[in-house]
């Protein structure tokens, strides 16, 4: 019986590097999970943003799915961001559920096209005292939560973040904005202590941080 004391990121496709950078900023060296055996000593696993159809296909053909479910049952917490939230949902509108680990109903790509992607600033007291900038990219919506699931953030007609005892789901991308609050929240949910007092990545480290703002309507 191994101890579950590490944080992993599913490394098949999508925003892996960005999650890793946030965790490293908190002093956590993540495991980049490519094969099922790497799940054995994880206290928590992040399912990153990417394309959910691609991720689920790779999870299934490389037989990671059964082991992932077993690890989850054995205590491994899971945080799904964007595509990851779709993967863990018990119900997907108009589609079959995939991993089915959290009692939430999601609508895939619920805002429309890339032109409908957006940023917003919110306050989620349970996660951070400070306001946080959130980035939604071709995001899903959480339409409903079941028993044992708390909605952390309501926006308009949908839920943007939810939590159960063993899962965290966010339809936005905390790995793309400077705040480390969500990563800290998840790591601590997994029972790992963070000694770093950093709350934000000091320099805005988005890949695009220095690039030209193509539509400068300030």
């Amino acid at each position: 019986m191994t101890t579950r004391n590490k944080i992993g990121i599913l490394d098949l496709q999508g925003g892996v590097h960005e999650h890793a950078f946030h965790l490293q900023s908190l002093g956590i060296e993540p495991v980049r999970v490519k094969v099922a055996e790497q799940l054995d000593d994880l206290a928590g696993l992040i399912l990153p943003g990417g394309e959910s159809t691609c991720l689920i296909r790779l999870l299934n053909i490389f037989e990671i799915t059964p082991k992932l479910k077993a690890a989850h049952a054995d205590g491994m917490k899971i945080w799904g961001t964007c595509a990851g939230a779709i993967l863990i949902a018990n119900r997907i509108e108009g589609d079959q559920p995939q991993l089915g680990l959290m009692d939430i109903t999601v609508a895939r790509n619920a805002f429309g096209y890339q032109i409908d992607s957006f940023n917003t600033i919110v306050n989620i007291p349970k996660v951070s005292k400070k306001d946080m900038e959130l980035t939604f990219i071709r995001a899903p919506k959480i339409r409903a939560v079941g028993k044992g699931v708390d909605a952390l953030l309501h926006i308009d007609d949908y839920i943007a973040a939810a939590e159960s005892e063993k899962c965290l789901a966010t339809v936005f991308h905390p790995e793309l904005t400077p705040s480390l609050a969500f990563h800290k929240y998840f790591v601590e949910k997994c029972g790992i202590t963070i000694t770093s007092e950093l709350t934000e990545i000091p320099e805005r480290t988005s890949w695009m941080q220095f690039a030209r703002i193509a539509n400068p309507t300030k």
Binding site: G14, H17, G49, E51, T120, T135, A211, I213
Partner: peptide
């Protein structure tokens, strides 16, 4: 928030990384 449009657009590509 329109001044973030370029960043949002480049971030979509970040989500495609490692894919086909």
């Amino acid at each position: 928030m329109e001044n973030n449009r370029f960043e949002l657009n480049a971030q979509l590509a970040q989500m495609l990384k490692g894919g086909v």
